[in-house]
Design a protein around this nucleic acid. Sequence first.
DNA 1: ATGAAAGCGCTAACAT
DNA 2: ATGTTAGCGCTTTCAT
Lengths: 333, 333
Amino acid sequence: MRDVASRAGVSIATVSRFINDPETLSPDMRARVEDAVRALGYIRHGAARALSMRRSHAIGAIIPTVDNPTRASKVAALQKHCRENGYNVLLALSEYDLDLELQQCRNLVEAGADGLMLEGGLHHPELYELLESRNIVFVNTIVYDPASPYPNIGFDNRGMARRLAEHLLDLGHTEFGVISGPRGSNDRARERVEGVHRALAKKGLPLPAERVVERPYRVAEGRLGLKTLMELPSPPTAVICGNDVLAFGAILEAQALGYDVPGDVSIAGFDDLDWASQLPPGLTTIALPAPKVGLLAARYLLETLAGKAMPHATEVEVRLIRRGSTGPAPKRG
Amino acid sequence: MRDVASRAGVSIATVSRFINDPETLSPDMRARVEDAVRALGYIRHGAARALSMRRSHAIGAIIPTVDNPTRASKVAALQKHCRENGYNVLLALSEYDLDLELQQCRNLVEAGADGLMLEGGLHHPELYELLESRNIVFVNTIVYDPASPYPNIGFDNRGMARRLAEHLLDLGHTEFGVISGPRGSNDRARERVEGVHRALAKKGLPLPAERVVERPYRVAEGRLGLKTLMELPSPPTAVICGNDVLAFGAILEAQALGYDVPGDVSIAGFDDLDWASQLPPGLTTIALPAPKVGLLAARYLLETLAGKAMPHATEVEVRLIRRGSTGPAPKRG
DNA sequence: ATGAAAGCGCTAACAT
DNA sequence: ATGTTAGCGCTTTCAT
């Protein structure tokens, strides 16, 4: 910057003004500085700027893993909006581990992240303390909960699971099974199971413990999950899976075991991944507009940083997509 | 830091030493500073440190998109290794657009990224200029090319495509088709098509232009690609797809059109995604250990930054996995 | 409209 | 082994 200033024959303050607010310069000055900047290929030093402004212009994103396309699209949308507004994105992975998440969070705080996008509402208590004590803006995503003390943007996970269950209840099913993702520190997974629970309870139907199996989010695990359910003394006729990946496995396994989908067993998931419409007989699922969540999260963080008051909780609407994998309950044998 | 120092009754230099190299302190001092640090919940200010050290401890990663699990696993591995060594990861997306990639690169340079992981070897010429003029360490990934002037870590894309083609040649196929991803600014996609080309050329077999279709990496597009190929006056009996996603679509479409896979047409891809072994009849594919690439890239960048000389080009071995989707060429009708 | 200069919170060279 | 202090490259008041 010093070099630019001396080459343009101006003070460094003028160069700084040119970079940050060219309008305040006289046209003459502006041209001179512009030439110098171009000639020297000057790029502002972010750390110095951050130190001086007490703002790093970086947003941190902590997500469990990056291997799910739905989640990936959320991060992509966040990155895009941030970039368009002069912010960079620091990516950190928590691997569904609260302690690791806290550690990553500390890293991001040290890196100076101005804001943080988290996933879910279940975090290490120290994480919340840390963020609040330092006044770091953050938002929980994928979850929508107006009652939460923390800002959030996402889906009504319980409600959408209920909707899926009701869809199947309407088709006459009474024997439900669930292949959930690991619920350990994953409130989204928990709420989805709870949603099914509630829909059934409302009809006086039970959801016995053995009808809920927990499996990591992989196709082969979905297969195992379905196998376990179908080997039960009384197997379900409707299986709700924690996401489309598990549902993928469930459909394949059902077919491999000789069951007709949906003739013998209906199967549904969450996400509406790319292939959900393609894999016969078509997967009934809940479409989750994750890019919208990413965009709204970015907007929430940047606007809040800009001093604007933003809504505390924002629900992103989901859509039930009925396809061939769910159908009327089989007649009682 | 000043607060910590005064609370512990030491100078700020001592606090700095405690943070960076506790061993050099006397046990007594160490304990006092530790208490103060803990009591105040002190976290070092990254920007100030970066400014002072002229090192941000951040690595930038620019990838085209984040929606492919193979790529995602590469970034995850990079992030993990970086974190374990005190580095953060700045994520930027290029959307297969060279100009956008350059812009993202400028952002990362401004953010002070000490090193950069890129994908492919085809970049905007200014990007290379920028990085070299500033002495920013970088590495191209997913591509292996000892002849490249730029450091790289990855796969022999041409060679692995050749291997897939040879596998099908061995099965007696002579009529080949290719469903490639968009080759515009994607050298990996180009090289895969070239690899098939060469394998065929060695046997004196042609690969007519109409037998190579280009489709975006989506399942539905893979279907379209296969349909196009099978509607040709002389349809292929072996179809090599640019990746598993396209192959997924190709298999579904072949089956939907009434072809037996592999009886009528053999289909293969690249990636070995989660479901490749699960989807009947099982997808023949090339397994790409992308996490290894991410780890090696991280190691390359960090070690180079540490002043160590690292190999200019590193090949990561891939594995041909034969499954049910490829079989003997059908007898000539 | 432009310049001078203080200071952001560290690290590291130097002094003790 | 510990303290003192000079920057690191910006932004931003305050003068002019």
